[in-house]
Design a protein around this nucleic acid. Structure first.
Length: 765
DNA sequence: CAGTGAGCGAGCTTCCGCTTGACTT
């Protein structure tokens, strides 16, 4: 018999706590929720006041049987799940599953994992808070109703296996709407004038001031006229202002800000950040990584202070506690910080090291002094124009927290190079070295990255730290959005330059629309979004979550009955479901583009069974229409008649080779050549499927055949030893087998291979 | 793994939030 059993949510947490509590306590973990709504069917008896049908998921059976065993061996049970809505529900489910009396079950909570906090918690147990539990049940059931009633409507009206939900559908909406803003954006250009001025000092030295004109010019003519004025102008400094200012450090990391900074500074995807953070957490190197709180424990504050003072001096220390700003934050945990702040770095895998150091810097910087800066603005007037030039410069007087860390922004404009403004006075005369007018184009708002989407969702109070990464995966898995790079296009910019009394014109090429790791909506995502907007505008409304959260709060405070809230929601919602099922047609995103200029047949595009498709002609008078798949990156919404007709130029025959047809086309994986039922990819950036010749095709085939032969180390007929990406391996009947370490692939016999295959098959079973 | 585009239709797909492994490549 054990005296005390403490149940927490996370096994890593259990391990740490057990050390604090001594031998009278055993600490185990529930691995999160242990019960959920039934997987099959709805799992809710709507007619019976939304009675939930809870079951223990298969993958939780072992955890639950362990929990039962330990519970039966313990005198006192303490439930220490997190102090938030989900944690309270976990406590309640635990009590139910372990058959504990709610009146006497000891519920404890702590916000930081320190001996003090835990022993304190043990001294102050309370009961399970049923109002909080009920607010969780309302949340859970509402999400199930939304997801499991709308998704089947999509299967019927759009395509099978699609999904909709309170969180994912808003995420898709954000991306679709941003894309449409970009599509309809009208680029404008203007000329920005910058100048490099010279101050001639008495001692014969001269210094330089870079400044920008207060006005932008509509076109090259206006810019030219202004440069002509500049040539004859006298320049005088009319005002010099020096303003002191401060900059403050950012708060310590939450899940969302960690994902954003790890993307910006380290290039990690949201899922990658979480995987690396999980490793650090399990190794005891950082605190819990799924949190919405910016709080640091007293111990962490004190330790940071120590580290800062000994590393940088007293002047650099400023202890702060940040208030959590994000909507709907539940603050069950601390901010993400190093467990031992003394360690500014760790040993281990590269990615773990990098992320750890980022977390260390952010944590320590948050406890450091403001940086003190001095911002200088100089105004320069011309004697022949009302346009003024201004120069600004910033000098850091005291670096403070910047010594350790500075936050990145999504738009890093590094072209604004910093330089130090020389000391100047009012009335000083300036002379130009160069005045340059360069064309600038306006740009639409940028597409979302995974991390900037998480930021936006957090701002809207949609989703939780534990679901940001899975949500991003879901919308990609459903095919609603795709994360990819785009090469961008070249654009000419015009430049007029005034130097030594002469104005010259030139042009420069720059890249525009280049994208790296951005989220692009796909056709099916746009169709689903439009369908949801049309029929379920309440659910995809950006405020929907905030509104239901308010009601969940009311339930948690005991001011609203949870079943009443659900009745209020479900009545109108279910009516909309039935109405939509009855009245709406299948959505295909069809667009009639016009008539074929040669045959007069109708040309249209729509979502077909196998994806977006263009169609020439129609079914009606016994004619067979012709079809062609839309190639990647073409949107049903924006494709033109010409582009659609162009799709029918493929597949195209190149003629015969060795008696077999040689055909070129574009498939799922890009342009290909098909010959003898074998496929050969065209080379990216080199070959164009519309113009590639028979001769070139033969070269490509020859090259690939030679490469395949190089790949083969041994050929035993049905068994092959091949050279793969990860080194040599054996393949038989489409199954691959790894070689045991230290095997020399060149010396393998057929019998060796069979041995390896049989051994591997045994261990797989 | 790349081609398809009409139909017949069984049985399946799906949510959000809490937690980690168990797998293959």
């Amino acid at each position: 018999m054990i005296e005390n059993l403490v149940i927490v949510e996370s096994p890593a947490k259990a391990k740490t706590i057990e050390k604090f509590l001594g031998k009278d306590f055993r600490v185990i973990s529930s691995f999160g929720h242990i019960r959920d709504l039934a997987k099959k069917n709805l799992g809710i008896d709507i007619k019976n006041d939304f009675a939930p049908d809870y079951e223990i998921p298969k993958e939780k059976a072992k955890v639950v049987s362990d929990l039962r065993k330990y519970a039966s061996e313990s005198k006192n049970i303490w439930i220490a799940s997190d102090e938030d809505r989900e944690g309270e529900a976990i406590a309640w489910h635990l009590a139910g599953v372990l058959k504990l009396d709610l009146e006497t079950t000891k519920r404890i909570v702590f916000h930081e994992i320190t001996k003090e906090a835990i022993t304190d918690a043990i001294k102050n147990p309370r009961q399970v808070d049923m109002n909080l539990v009920n607010s969780q049940q309302a949340r859970r059931i509402l999400d199930r109703l939304v997801g499991f009633e709308i998704s089947p409507v999509l299967w019927k009206k759009v395509q099978p296996a699609l999904s909709a939900g309170r969180v994912q559908s808003v995420a898709v909406r954000l991306i679709v709407e941003r894309e449409r803003e970009i599509i309809s954006f009208k680029t404008e250009s203007s000329f920005r004038v910058t100048a490099v001025f010279r101050i001639d000092e008495k001692d014969g030295n001269s210094s330089i001031i870079k400044a920008e004109a207060s006005k932008r010019f509509r076109d090259a003519d206006e810019a030219q006229k202004f440069l002509e004025l500049c040539n004859g102008a006298k320049y005088e400094i009319k005002a010099v202002t020096v303003k002191p200012g401060t900059r403050s450090p950012a708060p310590p990391f939450t899940t969302s800000t960690l994902q954003q900074e790890a993307y910006r500074k380290l290039g990690f995807s949201v899922a990658q950040t979480m995987a690396v953070a999980q490793k650090l957490y399990e190794a005891g190197k950082i605190t819990y990584m799924r949190t919405d709180s910016t709080n640091l424990s007293k111990m962490a504050l004190a330790k940071s202070r120590e580290v800062i003072i000994s590393g940088f001096g007293e002047k650099y220390s400023k202890t702060r506690q940040f208030k959590t700003k994000s909507k709907g934050a539940q603050e069950a945990h601390e901010a993400i910080r190093p467990t031992y702040i003394d360690n500014s770095t760790i040993t281990g895998a590269q990615n773990e090291k990098k992320l750890y150091e980022l977390i260390w810097k952010r944590t320590v910087a948050s406890q450091m002094s403001e940086a003190e800066v001095e911002k200088t603005t100089i105004s320069i007037e011309m004697n022949n124009s009302p346009v003024t030039f201004s120069a600004t410069g910033e000098v850091i007087k005291f670096d403070g927290f910047l010594r350790v860390y500075s936050e990145s922004t999504d738009q890093d404009n590094s072209d604004e190079e910093k330089y130090i403004i020389p000391p100047v006075k009012n009335g000083m005369l300036l002379y130009y070295n160069y005045v340059t007018a360069s064309q600038k184009f306006t740009a639409p708002l940028p597409r979302y990255t995974e991390a900037s989407l998480v930021k936006k969702l957090e701002e809207l109070g949609i989703g939780r730290p534990s679901t940001y990464a899975p949500t991003i995966s879901t919308i990609q898995n459903r095919g609603y959005v795709l994360r990819e790079d785009r090469p961008g296009e070249k654009r000419q910019i015009r430049i007029l330059a005034l130097e030594k009394g002469r104005i010259s014109a030139s042009s420069k090429t720059e890249m525009t629309g280049k994208e790296k790791s951005k989220l692009f909506p796909q056709n099916i995502g746009m169709i689903v979004n439009d369908f949801l907007m049309e029929n379920f505008s309440d659910i995809v409304d950006y405020h929907f979550t905030a509104e239901v959260e308010e009601q969940f709060d009311q339930i948690a405070m005991g001011k609203l009955k949870w079943t009443k809230m659900l009745h209020g929601f479900y009545g109108p919602f279910h009516k909309t479901i039935e109405n939509t099922l009855e009245k709406k047609n299948r959505q295909t995103g069809v667009r009639i583009l016009g008539d074929h200029p040669e045959t007069g047949e109708q040309v249209s595009v729509r979502m077909g069974r196998f994806g977006p498709v263009a169609q020439i002609g129609s079914q009606d008078n016994g004619n067979k229409p012709r079809f062609a798949s839309l190639t990647k990156n073409l949107l049903l919404e924006t494709i033109t008649l010409e582009e659609a007709i162009g799709l029918f130029r493929l597949p195209r025959s190149l003629g015969k080779h060795e008696g077999e047809d040689m055909v070129v086309g574009i498939g799922k994986f890009g342009p290909y050549i098909r010959h003898n039922n074998k496929f050969y990819s065209l080379h990216k950036g080199v070959d164009d499927p519309y113009t590639v010749t028979l001769e070139r095709a033969l070269e490509i085939i020859k090259e690939k055949t030679e490469n395949e032969q190089k790949k083969t180390i041994k050929d035993f007929g049905d068994i092959l030893v091949l050279n793969g990406r990860y080194g040599p391996y054996i393949t038989r009947e489409k199954q691959n087998y790894r070689l045991p370490k230290g095997t020399d692939a060149e010396k393998l016999t057929k019998d060796d291979c069979i041995n390896i295959i049989e051994k591997s098959n045994k261990s797989r079973k």
